[in-house]
């Protein structure tokens, strides 16, 4: 296994004027690791995620990513072309609202196939076969391949979004409240599916969630955020079973027992 991290984040900060989005965040992420960022609304976790995923320019600090050629590159020094290429090949981004991550007016098959076509696949039959395979892996029936996501339930849309992101075998996936808008039973199925995919594919993932049960099931490590700062980090079960920071104790004690 590689001993080099995939992502190196150093003193990352984002300010909105005088307000703090997130401040002085430093961590490393290794291949195959799932990191959960937890905290309540407004704690800065989504700001941090967007700064990491190059969707929002940070005010200070650096984010370095190990490219497939093993070279570390500062994400904010990449050209826009390189950055966008990275985002649709080596990365995935799963939005809370699937409509933000899908093309709602093209078929499920084309939604999954788009990334393949973007990297130059020009064989319809192969693209369709790959799309079919991926729909199966996210438990969408093969005969729905030509339906538009508009005709899908919330859970199916979310699974389609995941397939769309994973089809190029990314090494790093960002997820913003991936189970956010789903009812509990649908959530459980999706979480279980994600857990399986992440471990089977050896994906590294950064999952933003306010739901500690999601963090427990999906992640190896956790960062707890409050008011833009990291207040506690560690192994997920350690943070949840023996929380140290006052805020983490409050967070853990205020959830229903699972």
């Amino acid at each position: 296994m590689s001993d080099l991290p995939l992502l190196k984040v150093n003193a990352l900060s984002k300010f909105y004027g005088s307000r703090i989005g997130c401040q002085n965040v430093t961590f490393e992420l290794w291949p195959g690791e799932v990191l959960a960022i937890v905290g309540e609304s407004g704690s800065g976790k989504t700001t941090l995620l967007n700064c990491l995923a190059t969707r929002l320019a940070p005010s200070a600090g650096s984010v370095e990513y190990r490219m497939r050629d093993s070279q570390f590159r500062d994400l904010y020094r990449l050209s826009e072309a390189e950055r966008r290429f990275l985002m649709r090949t080596d990365w995935g981004f799963v939005h809370q609202n699937p409509a933000d991550g899908l093309r709602m007016t093209v078929s499920a098959g084309a939604n999954v196939g788009e990334r393949l076509m973007a990297v130059g696949d020009r064989h319809y039959g192969k693209i369709r076969a790959t799309a079919t395979d991926w729909l199966g892996r996210v438990e969408i029936a093969e005969d729905r391949i030509d339906d538009q996501p508009r005709a899908f339930s919330g859970g199916m849309r979310q699974r389609l979004q995941i397939a769309r992101n994973l089809v190029t075998n990314p090494r790093l996936v960002f997820m913003d409240e991936p189970t956010g808008g789903l009812d509990v039973s649908v959530q459980a199925r999706l979480l279980d599916l994600l857990r399986g995919l992440v471990s089977d594919l050896g994906l590294a993932a950064i999952v933003v969630t306010h739901d500690l049960a999601v963090a427990r099931l999906l992640s190896h490590r956790m960062m707890v955020m409050k008011d833009g700062h990291i207040v506690e980090t560690g192994l997920t079960d350690r943070v949840l079973d023996d929380p140290q920071a006052p805020y983490t104790q409050l967070l853990v004690s205020s959830i229903l027992q699972v």
């Binding site: 826009e80 072309a81 966008r84 649709r88 093309r103 093209v106 078929s107 098959g109 084309a110 196939g113 788009e114 990334r115 393949l116 076509m117 973007a118 990297v119 020009r122 319809y124 693209i127 369709r128 391949i145 030509d146």
Partner: peptide
């Protein structure tokens, strides 16, 4: 415009894909 600038034309094939699928 950005897609033209960066030569990101995968989307154009999505349209053709949809044609064949349908």
């Amino acid at each position: 415009r950005k897609m033209h600038a960066l030569e990101e034309y995968g989307l154009m094939h999505v349209k053709l894909y949809e044609d064949i699928a349908r």
